[in-house]
């Protein structure tokens, strides 16, 4: 047997454009995350199961809510559906930082950093692609289950609105979580922050009850909460013909239309990405 050449291959530098290299490394990093998911699907399953339990239990809990409590005489299950869809996407995205944090802690990130990556943003990009897909798939699973439970299904235009809204929210929360994954010292701290942030943000939103049902101070909180700006357009998409210019929320500070909701989410996403950029640049420099 001739021993295969192990040594130096000088003609090994440039084999394509920068874009091709960027795609190759991003694809490889994304593929790793999906392989992990495929072999350890518990996060996917739990991410669907938890909101499903919310939907069934909470839906049953308030199924006898007096008529006229909810806007437009909507049933509680139907009202709750939008909240649970948003909650699903939100929780999934909030966990985006965990794999990155583990890579930092176990030194796998160092393995990536000694490689001649075309751009280290491919590490962040892979996480964003992965978590976006994961949370959208989970949300879709919830939507399908909800429709089987008789809570309705948005039309084609409605579905598009749901997806756009979720995408914006997921981007924003993913940015936040990735920022935390690089700012905090370890996974214990990250999990603590996720744990603390999760439920209060849900309760202080219009996911479980309408604004009119809340004491004024909570109403203020809920109408500043980004989750509310995602819930209301989705609820509207479920409610009937789509009109983004219609008022979705009578907040204490004024009326909020569908367009405003999307605009707020867009601005929030942009702001968060700008906010974490210096941090990522420093940590991945």
């Amino acid at each position: 047997m001739t021993s295969p050449a192990l040594g130096t291959n000088p003609s090994n530098s440039d084999n394509g454009s920068a874009i091709a290299e960027l795609l190759q490394e991003t694809f490889a990093l994304t593929r790793r995350l999906f392989l992990q998911l495929q072999r350890r699907p518990s996060t996917l399953v739990a991410g669907v199961l938890q909101p499903l339990i919310w939907l069934v239990l909470f839906g049953a809990l308030f199924s006898r809510a007096p008529e006229g409590l909810l806007p437009g005489g909507m049933s509680y299950g139907r009202f709750l559906g939008a909240g649970v869809i948003v909650f699903t996407a939100f929780s999934a995205a909030l966990n985006a930082g965990l794999p990155v944090m583990f890579d930092r802690e176990f030194g796998f990130l160092n393995r990536l950093l000694v490689a001649p990556l075309r751009s280290r943003s491919s590490i962040v990009l892979a996480s964003v692609i992965y978590i976006t897909t994961l949370s959208l798939v989970q949300s879709l699973a919830i939507m399908l289950t909800a429709s089987l439970l008789g809570y309705g299904w948005p039309g084609a235009a409605g579905l598009l609105l749901v997806m756009v809204t979720l995408l914006l929210l997921v981007f924003a929360v993913t940015a936040l979580s990735l920022g935390l994954a690089f700012a905090l010292p370890g996974h214990i701290e990250l999990i603590a922050v996720i744990f603390v942030a999760n439920l209060p943000l849900l309760f202080a939103s219009t996911a479980l009850a309408p604004l009119s049902f809340m004491p004024p101070w909570l109403g203020w909180l809920a109408s500043l909460n980004p989750l509310t700006f995602a819930i209301e357009p989705i609820r509207a998409a479920y409610a009937g013909p789509l009109d983004l210019s219609s008022v979705l929320l009578e907040a204490p500070y004024g009326s909020v239309t569908g367009t405003t909701c999307l605009l707020v989410l867009t601005l929030l996403t942009a702001a968060l990405f700008l906010l974490i950029r210096p941090l990522l640049n420093r940590k991945l420099a």
């Binding site: 090994n12 490394e25 990093l29």
Partner: peptide, 8 residues
């Protein structure tokens, strides 16, 4: 994965 990070 390593090979892709080195763009082989």
């Amino acid at each position: 994965l390593q090979g892709d990070l080195y763009h082989l």
